[in-house]
């Protein structure tokens, strides 16, 4: 464990807590893409298959449980909670996210580190996570007024993967044989997808104006 990875995990945890806070306290999911949340639940479900088979550390197991429970509860809230579901804008959240699932799975079948079920599912979860934010970014461009919590949620989600990139660089230089090209490239693609969001987020913060993404 290194400081970049710990900071990355804490930032990721913060993004999930910000989202749960928003949904649980103001009982609203306005501006949140259910499709991105469903993709994230699938990412964790396929990545943490080894939850009960491989014990790495208490921290690792605890965080996996937190991410699994939180991502599925967020999906449940938006879909089934009688008040929250009313604020879900399904006419705007129209990204065909199922078109992301199959290509990621096929790519995982072809490009992976080991041709085993667990490893292919793990690689699938990596590719899927890289594109999972797309429905949310499309929704942000459609909904004019982005509320602070939603902006912070997306920012933290992008920031966590950027910190992971620093973690991979650190591990590459400190641990012999630590080479995971698949993880690095998909993590880089994921972070690049946030690039323009980061730019507008920083501009809105610097000029102290409301966050707006160009249509």
């Amino acid at each position: 464990m290194n400081i970049f990875r710990l900071a990355g995990d804490m930032t990721h945890l913060a993004s999930v807590l910000v989202l749960l806070l928003k949904i649980h306290t103001i009982k609203s999911c306005a501006g949140i893409s259910l499709k991105t949340q469903e993709l994230y639940a699938l990412v964790f479900a396929t990545r943490y298959l080894d939850l009960f088979t491989d014990y790495i550390s208490l921290y690792n197991t605890l965080m996996k449980l937190i991410f699994l429970v939180s991502s599925f509860s967020i999906v449940w809230y938006i879909r089934h909670h009688k008040i929250v579901r009313r604020s879900y804008d399904k006419d705007q959240d129209t990204f065909r996210h199922y078109f992301l699932v199959l290509p990621c799975f096929l790519l995982a079948l072809v490009i992976n580190e080991k041709f085993t079920v667990k490893e292919i599912m793990w690689t699938f979860s990596l590719y899927l996570e890289a594109v999972a934010i797309l429905p949310q970014l499309v929704l942000l461009q459609r909904t004019r007024n982005i509320d602070n919590l939603t902006g912070q949620y997306v920012f933290l989600l992008g920031a966590y993967r950027s910190l992971y990139i620093l973690n991979w660089i650190y591990r590459y230089f400190t641990e012999p044989h630590y080479v995971h090209w698949i993880t690095w490239i998909s993590g880089l693609v994921q972070t690049l997808l946030y690039a323009d969001f980061f730019y507008y987020y920083f501009q809105s913060w610097k000029n102290n104006v409301k966050l707006e993404l160009p249509a």
């Binding site: 990875r5 990721h12 580190e113 793990w122 992971y164 993880t183």
Partner: peptide, 10 residues
């Protein structure tokens, strides 16, 4: 190494 899980990151 065998047995050791391939991935220790979240």
């Amino acid at each position: 190494p065998l047995g050791q899980p391939m991935h220790d990151e979240l």
